[in-house]
Each structure stands twice: as structure tokens, then as C-alpha cells.
Amino acid sequence: YETEATFFDEGVRTAKQKQLEEKLLQLVQPAFQAMLGHIRSGTLDKFKEAFDKALNGGEAFSSAASSSTQTYMALFDEGCADAVIKQVEWDTSKVRDKLRRDIDAHITSVRTAKLSEVTKTYEGKLNEALSGPVEALLDEANSGTWPAIRKLLQRETELAVSGFSSALSGFDMDEETKEKMLTSLMDFARGIVEAKAREEAGRVLIRMKDRFATLFSRDPDSMPRVWTGKEDIRAITKTARSA
């Protein structure tokens, strides 16, 4: 342009050059925006891969999230710097903000899934540690049953809460949220015992009937009772009922 416009008036030449530059930039801007979008999506994919790899490698959640975010936001900035056109200062902040929101959303999603996974793990441990033993204790109910159940509940709850608390420490959550989750786990443990107790309570009448029938129809040596007509039916019935 400068070669061909050499003999034109300088004012005209300058004005026309400015118009030409503006038109060229208008043509280039869509490609520039597309390039930024490509850099953003590529950076997000790399972030997700690195973040998952860090978590699978045993790094604490909050540490992995922080380090990965810093690394890949910096990588995005480098990519933008290479794509920027020196003649114009186009704003890349909106695309950068979009990337940060996408990264934060992914972190939140993974965090929710991981917390759910950890919670289910410790709920499963409690269920395994309490369900069978509590049911067995209730089946052989006696005066020591409930003290034994309370002792079992306390021991297994303390073990689970300790492990759960350690697992949650890697998520860098506030104390109030952490306490709520620990309390929820303790409530879950009590719920297991209460559910088993309700199940057993529903079977009490059947057990009482079976016990009565057994004592009524068998002698003190547990042999089938032979009815001769001389038995004290009232006494036998009273004994069976009281048992």
C-alpha cells in the first residue's frame, strides 16, 4: 500500500492506511477469538487430565486443585501472549474468566463426587461392623445385650469418625461443614442400630409365641412332653408365660 500510495497527499494516504488497517483487523479478529477459544478448551482438557492424575497419585484434593489451577492458568496466559497481535490490544480477560469458571466448576464437580465416595466408604465400613454383630446380640438378648451394643456402637463409631476426619482434612473445608459431615456419620451409625432394634422388635411377638410353645410342649429336660392327664396345666402355662 505504501509503495502504491507514495504520490498521494500525505493526509489522504494516512487516512486510507488507517481504514485499511481497521478492515484487516476486522477480518483477523474472528480468527483471533477462535484461537483464544481453542487455547481455552485445550488448556481445560489438559487441566482435567493433570488434576485427575494428581488425585489418582494420592495428592490431597485441595493441594492438587490449587497447584493444577495455577499451572494451567499460567499456561493459558502464555498461549494468549503468543496469539496477541502487537498492533492492537484486544481484551482476552473474558476468555480467561471463562476458563477460570470452567476450572472451578470442574473442581466443584469432582469435589462433590469424591466427598460422596469417601462418605459411602465409611458408611459401608460402619454397616459391615455393626449390622451383623448387633443382629447377633439381639438374637441372644439378655440383660447384657444393650450395654454390649452401646459399647460396640461407641467403638466402631469412634474408629470410623477418626478415619473419616483424616480423609476430609485433604479437602480444606471449613470446620462447620466438617463437623456436620462427622455428625451425619455418627447419626448413620446410630441409625443402623436403631433399624436393627426395630426389626427385632417386630419379631418379638413371634419369638414370644415360639418360646411359649416350646416350654409348654416340652418338659424341663427339653424332651417332648407326654400328657398323662395328671399334669398341672396352670403351673406349666404360668412357667411358659413367665419365660
Results as ranks from 00 to 15, higher is better:
residue 226 V to C: 01
residue 210 D to E: 15
residue 235 A to W: 01
residue 50 A to H: 09
residue 49 E to K: 15
residue 83 A to V: 02
residue 238 K to A: 05
residue 240 A to H: 01
residue 157 T to F: 04
residue 209 K to R: 12
residue 86 K to F: 06
residue 54 A to D: 15
residue 171 F to Q: 02
residue 229 G to L: 01
residue 75 L to V: 10
residue 37 G to Q: 12
residue 10 E to S: 07
residue 25 L to K: 12
residue 240 A to C: 00
residue 222 S to E: 14
residue 20 L to W: 15
residue 164 F to Y: 15
residue 233 I to N: 04
residue 116 S to D: 05
residue 158 E to T: 07
residue 150 R to A: 05
residue 23 K to H: 14
residue 3 T to Y: 01
residue 66 S to T: 09
residue 148 A to D: 14
residue 115 L to K: 03
residue 123 E to V: 00
residue 32 F to P: 02
residue 203 R to Q: 09
residue 239 T to N: 03
residue 234 R to E: 10
residue 110 V to E: 01
residue 215 L to P: 09
residue 149 I to M: 04
residue 118 V to F: 00
residue 19 Q to I: 10
residue 200 E to G: 05
residue 195 A to F: 00
residue 170 G to N: 05
residue 24 L to A: 09
residue 226 V to K: 15
residue 91 D to W: 10
residue 230 K to C: 04
residue 187 D to E: 13
residue 18 K to V: 07
residue 208 M to I: 08
residue 42 G to H: 07
residue 220 P to S: 10
residue 213 A to L: 14
residue 12 V to M: 11
residue 191 G to T: 02
residue 158 E to R: 09
residue 170 G to Q: 02
residue 94 K to R: 11
residue 100 R to K: 11
residue 230 K to R: 08
residue 185 L to D: 01
residue 221 D to W: 07
residue 87 Q to E: 12
residue 158 E to L: 11
residue 48 K to W: 07
residue 78 E to F: 07
residue 16 K to S: 09
residue 108 T to R: 09
residue 42 G to C: 13
residue 142 N to T: 06
residue 141 A to Q: 11
residue 74 A to V: 02
residue 132 G to R: 05
residue 183 T to A: 10
residue 181 M to Q: 13
residue 243 A to Y: 03
residue 96 R to H: 08
residue 237 T to N: 07
residue 198 R to W: 11
residue 117 E to D: 12
residue 107 I to S: 03
residue 237 T to F: 06
residue 49 E to P: 04
residue 74 A to M: 02
residue 166 S to H: 02
residue 219 D to A: 09
residue 141 A to T: 05
residue 233 I to A: 01
residue 196 K to P: 01
residue 158 E to V: 03
residue 5 A to D: 08
residue 18 K to C: 03
residue 54 A to L: 14
residue 154 Q to I: 08
residue 209 K to V: 15
residue 91 D to G: 05
residue 162 S to C: 08
residue 22 E to H: 08
residue 178 K to M: 13
residue 232 D to F: 10
residue 186 M to W: 01
residue 125 K to T: 06
residue 99 L to F: 06
residue 115 L to E: 07
residue 181 M to C: 05
residue 230 K to N: 14
residue 217 S to Q: 11
residue 111 R to W: 00
residue 148 A to M: 10
residue 228 T to R: 11
residue 150 R to G: 00
residue 85 I to K: 07
residue 130 L to G: 02
residue 51 F to D: 13
residue 148 A to R: 14
residue 30 P to K: 05
residue 33 Q to E: 15
residue 141 A to V: 09
residue 116 S to I: 02
residue 29 Q to T: 13
residue 96 R to K: 12
residue 88 V to H: 04
residue 73 M to R: 13
residue 158 E to M: 13
residue 62 S to R: 11
residue 75 L to F: 08
residue 179 E to N: 15
residue 138 L to N: 06
residue 104 D to F: 04
residue 107 I to D: 00
residue 24 L to V: 08
residue 211 R to T: 15
residue 1 Y to F: 04
residue 120 K to M: 06
residue 29 Q to L: 14
residue 16 K to Q: 13
residue 82 D to F: 06
residue 65 A to L: 06
residue 232 D to I: 06
